[in-house]
């Protein structure tokens, strides 16, 4: 049981699934807001993948909240610190994309990429 299904495998499957779902939404959907949702999902998947690389089974969070906690029984803090900033940047990017989409809607009156001439592909 442990050989086939470990925590790392589960998390890898989950993050891979989220990234592929997000990319699928970006490639196939025609609504612009839904495409931004797809980018958001893919980014969440990348974050899960990054944090799961630092995870060590059975270890505690990297916080010395009480005495007696061993360094060797803590998870890696570096990926967590990177993901912490990455989440905030992701929100900024989504907000910028949505602001552009609102402006585009005011100019063209539609959100469908197949109806906007510059965005057809």
């Amino acid at each position: 049981m442990n050989g086939v299904l470990s925590i790392s495998t589960v998390l890898n499957f989950g993050s891979a699934g989220l990234i592929v779902l997000g990319l699928y939404i970006v490639f196939t959907q025609k609504n612009l807001i839904k495409m931004v949702i797809g980018i958001d999902l893919a980014e969440t998947g990348v974050n899960v993948l990054l944090v799961s690389t630092g995870y060590i089974k059975g270890n505690t969070a990297p916080i010395f909240s009480k005495t007696g906690l061993q360094v060797s029984s803590m998870v890696d803090p570096v990926p967590q610190a990177l993901v912490l900033t990455s989440i905030v940047i992701g929100f900024g990017v989504s907000a910028l994309a949505l602001a552009m989409i609102i402006k585009l809607y005011e100019k063209t009156g539609t959100l469908d990429t197949s109806k906007i001439r510059g965005l057809k592909w």
């Binding site: 799961s52 995870y55 505690t60 998870v75």
Partner: peptide, 24 residues
């Protein structure tokens, strides 16, 4: 998976602010 810092940030941004901006 023992990363409460990331969890609190994801809950605050992903579940609150992103939804607000999308709904607007």
């Amino acid at each position: 998976i023992a990363s409460p810092d990331v969890a609190i940030t994801e809950a605050a941004i992903g579940a609150a602010l992103t939804t607000v901006v999308f709904v607007i």
